[in-house]
């Protein structure tokens, strides 16, 4: 199993680094933009916070974007949330299906390793790469704060990144199941699912009657403005996340171990 983990880590390293440098780099640029916009941002903050439901949706009524923390939460929170969810979906959706899609399954599955172990090895690879992605992005954000001469809000940043990592794991678990059920790589479907989940959260924050169901989506506990404002996440959000990850993973094992491989 260790050989498979090493192999997958090596095969996917380049892709992970490209995503991490892109998302982290974008976040860094956003932070650096704060100084150039500092003068205008106070006026903007007042108008943004008075946009009703839309201000709520993007967290601009929770935290003023005139502050560096508010600016980070609003801008980088969105970039990292969307970027990391898309990376998780992109990465996990091809992990199992690529063996059938690329016809390498006959090579891999004729080696003395059970499908269960392959699922575990590839699943662990996803976790390691998601954690590495989060750390690299975190380093970019910390560098951004330092470059501006601001104190790094360590506690909030760690909480923000930990919640993002959990959200990524949740999205990846859904995409991993998609990968297990299909013999073709369904990257488009997985990316679509991550965007739908994001849209669900935005709608949940804009439409008052949907607010009570916000906890069902993984973006409910990664709202950066709420994290930086030390607000509680919607009740049961983490429970739903844990149940989703366990359920999706169990279904991946059941589906893939019983599947006729089209390799």
């Amino acid at each position: 199993m260790t050989a498979i983990i090493k192999q997958e880590l090596k095969l996917n390293l380049k892709s992970m680094l490209i995503w991490a440098l892109t998302v982290g780099g974008l976040g860094f640029i956003c932070i650096m933009m704060y100084t150039s916009m500092e003068g205008d941002v106070v006026e903007m903050a007042d108008s943004f916070s008075e946009m009703g439901a839309f201000s709520d949706a993007f967290g601009m009524s929770t935290l003023s974007i005139a502050t560096i923390a508010g600016f980070f939460a609003t801008e980088v929170g969105t970039v990292h949330g969307l970027g990391s969810a898309m990376f998780a979906a992109f990465f996990a959706s091809s992990m199992l299906s690529k063996e059938e899609d690329g016809h390498t399954g006959e090579f891999l599955y004729a080696l003395p390793v059970s499908r269960g172990k392959v699922i575990t090895a590839k699943g662990l690879t996803i976790l390691v790469h998601l954690a590495a992605f989060t750390l690299i992005c975190g380093a970019f954000y910390a560098a951004g704060f330092t470059a501006l001469g601001e104190e790094i809000p360590s506690e909030e940043l760690i909480r923000f990144l930990t919640c993002m990592l959990l959200m990524n794991v949740e999205v990846a678990s859904v995409s991993y199941l998609i990968s297990a059920t299909s013999s073709k790589t369904r990257m488009g479907l997985a990316l679509g699912v991550s965007l739908i989940i994001y849209t669900y959260d935005i709608m949940g924050r804009v439409i008052p009657s949907m607010k009570d169901y916000l906890f069902l989506g993984p973006f409910s506990y990664v709202n950066a403005s709420e994290i930086f404002a030390h607000m509680d996440v919607p009740k049961y959000s983490f429970t739903v996340a844990a149940v989703t990850v366990v359920l999706m993973t169990a279904m991946t094992y059941v589906t893939y171990t019983k599947k006729d491989l089209a390799c």
């Binding site: 690329g102 390498t104 006959e106 090579f107 003395p112 390793v113």
Partner: peptide
Amino acid sequence: HEKILKDIGYMPSEALFY
């Protein structure tokens, strides 16, 4: 299954690798 594969050398017709 896993034990048997330790003692098998299989060559598929397509011979595709990464």
